[in-house]
């Protein structure tokens, strides 16, 4: 039981950074909070709303996302999309991710 909890915690740590990358990838098309949450979870990137919504704001504050209110529908919704700077960051994060995959798979193969 305890080992399972530890494994779960470690897996969460591992996933944490990937949510940013997933958002930067998905938000090439404008999207609002709840829909993004659904898309992410459907895609297998499990994330909690409590984490995602504040994260979107933080990324916006850092200039990686821009936002716009859409009042066409019944509910006004805040749509986020990637800024040009966010695109640059995404490119470098993708490269970083691929390097990690390569190194980790080599490591786990050698020692597995």
């Amino acid at each position: 039981m305890a080992t399972e909890d530890v494994a779960l915690g470690q897996a969460q740590e591992l996933r944490r950074g990937t949510v940013v990358l997933a958002c930067l990838a998905l938000l090439r098309k404008p999207q609002y909070g709840y829909a993004l949450l659904e898309t992410l979870n459907d895609a297998g990137v499990t994330v909690d709303g409590n984490t995602l919504y504040p994260l979107l704001r933080r990324l916006e504050k850092q200039g990686l996302l821009t936002s716009e209110w859409n009042t066409d529908e019944s509910r006004p919704r805040k749509f986020y999309r990637v800024s040009p700077e966010g695109s640059r960051v995404r490119t470098s994060l993708v490269r970083e991710w691929q390097d990690l995959v390569t190194s980790i798979s080599r490591l786990t193969k050698e020692n597995g």
């Binding site: 609002y32 909070g33 709840y34 829909a35 659904e38 709303g49 919504y53 209110w69 509910r75 805040k78």
Partner: peptide, 17 residues
């Protein structure tokens, strides 16, 4: 105001879904 509006929509969206 901005966060309040977004929170309201998000909560409503979640409930509806």
């Amino acid at each position: 105001d901005d966060i309040a509006d977004e929170l309201r929509t998000t909560i409503a969206d979640t409930i509806e879904a």
